[in-house]
Every structure is written in C-alpha cells, then in structure tokens.
C-alpha cells in the first residue's frame, strides 16, 4: 500500500489505465492528516503540521475490499490504488504485481539510489595537514 501511495499518479495511470469494475464504499475524499514528530527526535510527540491525503475504499464484484490512503489531492490516484489493493487479494495478484507493482518498485528504488548516491558524493574526506605535537 505504501508503494501505491508513493507512486506518481501519472505513472500509476500509465501502468494501470483501465480501472476494473468496482463499487465505491467510501470516498474518494481529500482531507488532511496531522503529521507528528518527536521532541528532540526521540522524545514525546508534538504536532508538526498537516499533509494532504486522499482516501478511497472500494469493493470488487467478487466481494473483495480494497483501501487506499494516498498523499496529495488526486482522487483518481486514490481510486486506482484502492482497486489495485483489492485485486491484490484475488488471483490477479500475480499479474498486478508483475505489471504494476514491480515497475513502480524498480523506478522508486532507482530514484532513491540515485539520490543517495549524489548525497554520498558530497561526503567530506578530511586530510590531516599538520599535527600540533612534535
């Protein structure tokens, strides 16, 4: 679900253009979630600020339910992610994994590695020039 939530909406739409038949149980509805942090990074929680979130719940004709909570305000994204979440509980799991999840995971991993690699290239190597004692 995290992968579907983080995926760029247009990329998801390109990988899964036609949404399977489904009934909407709730939403899609856009709202806000209060994001919390911790004092000193590890202490008691405090409210940092909100982020936008769109949620959707669907039911497939076979009776399986799917839920999605995706960052941002894109209702199509939430509906698509909810239907995919439901499909992952049916025999379509193999096809959905191969056609949608695997390419998303690969793209995300490549993007993360690229970013981490650029950061790593800015790591400082210190050289000791002179030591104070004789």
């Amino acid at each position: 679900m995290g992968l579907l939530a983080r995926a760029p909406a247009d990329r998801l739409a390109a990988l899964y253009p036609h949404i399977s038949e489904h009934a909407v149980l709730r939403g899609p509805e856009t709202g806000a979630v209060m994001v919390r942090g911790r004092q000193g990074g590890t202490g008691a929680p405090f409210n940092l600020g909100e982020m936008t979130l769109t949620r959707c719940s669907v039911r497939l004709p076979c009776g399986k339910d799917g839920h999605a909570y995706v960052q941002g305000r894109n209702k199509d994204h939430a509906r698509r992610a909810a239907v995919l979440d439901a499909l992952l509980q049916t025999e379509a799991i193999g096809e959905v994994t191969a056609r949608v999840l695997a390419p998303l995971a690969e793209a995300e991993s490549a993007q993360r590695t690229a970013r981490a690699s650029k950061a790593a290239a800015t790591k400082v190597e210190f050289f000791t020039m002179v030591r104070g004692e004789d």
Binding site: V24, L25, R26, G27, E29
Partner: peptide, 8 residues
C-alpha cells in the same frame, strides 16, 4: 463499509 453516502 456499505450504505454510506454515494455522492458525499
């Protein structure tokens, strides 16, 4: 999960 607003 059913029976809510269809057009909220």
């Amino acid at each position: 999960m059913t029976g809510g607003f269809a057009d909220a």
